[in-house]
């Protein structure tokens, strides 16, 4: 078998070539795993991870190492229209494809894209979305699963198969219900969101870490006859157990901690500087011993901004 390249959904534009969403399929038979990259125009890293996976799986398939009766599809980029003009959301109406699932075939353009995409990918046994977070910042690489009623125990166990340091379980809140991950899960697919460190930046190490994590998962689930370093021990925890440190003052953010730093209770994490007078108006210290999991990376902060997430030891 050779890699098959298909247009899985296409939409016409008045002034551009049509938007053709490309899917790359490896192996044949049972729809085993679908991997989706960029749904937003700034998810460069997410597309690059998928591109590298396409290249790697092509080599693996040429060596005959895709398991029998297993089919893997990769969709590196569903929204290159926005990517090509430097927008995060949809070119015309600024809507977010990842807030349109399961989609609507009679709806507006992004609802139709979500519908067309979802119909092509919903029947896979496993789904992996290369996700980005709505908050600006850097994360430690991790994989996340939604706490929905369908097949959640099995999905929790599968978190370790990625060999990433952290596997998170998220209790969905209403605004999650229109995401791809949530709808996949509701449809009966075991769905995971894989977060690399960056969104707009292709980081060599973090790209490779995400590629390897995905390959490890495919190996663990019997889709690839391939070997790879088993990765790290995965600590699985509920997202609610992560300490969210947010600002109670606004101004210029001066940080003293970064992701992966081990901090102790009372350690200074950052200062908030008065934007016009230069004085320190707030000092934020760590409330616990732990590791910095998320760090906000903009210079100005408003009140209620999540600036650090800390995972307790």
């Amino acid at each position: 078998m050779e890699m098959v390249k298909n247009i899985i959904y296409s939409i016409k534009s008045p002034y551009r070539q049509s938007l053709d969403i490309i899917g790359y399929t490896f192996g044949s038979g049972e729809p085993s795993c679908c991997i989706v990259g960029a749904l937003r125009g700034n998810e460069i890293q997410q597309m690059a991870i998928c591109a590298q996976l396409v290249n790697t799986l092509k080599n693996i398939e040429e060596k005959g190492c895709i398991a029998e009766n297993k089919s893997i599809m990769i969709i590196p980029c569903a929204n290159y229209y926005s990517m090509n003009i430097g927008k995060r959301f949809w070119t015309m109406d600024n809507t977010d494809i990842n807030r349109m699932f399961p989609g609507y075939e009679l709806g507006e353009t992004t609802q139709r894209i979500a519908d067309g995409l979802f119909k092509s990918i919903r029947d896979y046994v496993f789904g992996i979305q290369m996700a980005s977070f709505y908050q600006e910042g850097k994360f430690l690489p991790h994989v996340k699963v939604m706490d929905t009623s369908s097949g959640k125990e099995a999905a929790y166990e599968s978190l370790s198969d990625f060999g990433l340091p952290y596997g998170l379980i998220r209790k969905p809140i209403p605004y999650d219900t229109t995401t791809l991950n949530y709808n996949w899960q509701i449809w009966g697919c075991q769905a995971f969101s894989l977060f690399a460190t960056y969104t707009e930046h292709i980081g060599g190490q973090s790209t490779q870490a995400a590629v390897n994590a995905t390959l490890r998962f495919l190996i663990a689930k019997g889709m690839l006859k391939w070997s790879l370093h088993p990765g790290l021990h995965t600590r699985i925890l509920n997202e609610d157990n992560i300490w969210r440190i947010s600002t109670s003052r606004a101004g210029i953010l001066k940080k003293y901690a970064s992701i992966e730093d081990e901090v102790r209770e009372g350690d200074l994490l950052c200062e908030i500087i008065h934007p016009l007078e230069g004085s320190t108006i707030d000092k934020v210290v760590s409330p616990i011993d732990g590791i910095v999991f998320f760090s906000y990376n903009k210079q100005l902060v408003m009140e209620h901004t999540d600036i650090f997430n800390i995972i307790p030891f």
Binding site: A250, P275, L276, V301, M302
Partner: peptide, 10 residues
């Protein structure tokens, strides 16, 4: 009401 980075509040 919440503070914005520079001087004003929302």
């Amino acid at each position: 009401i919440a503070a914005l980075p520079v001087t004003e509040s929302l």
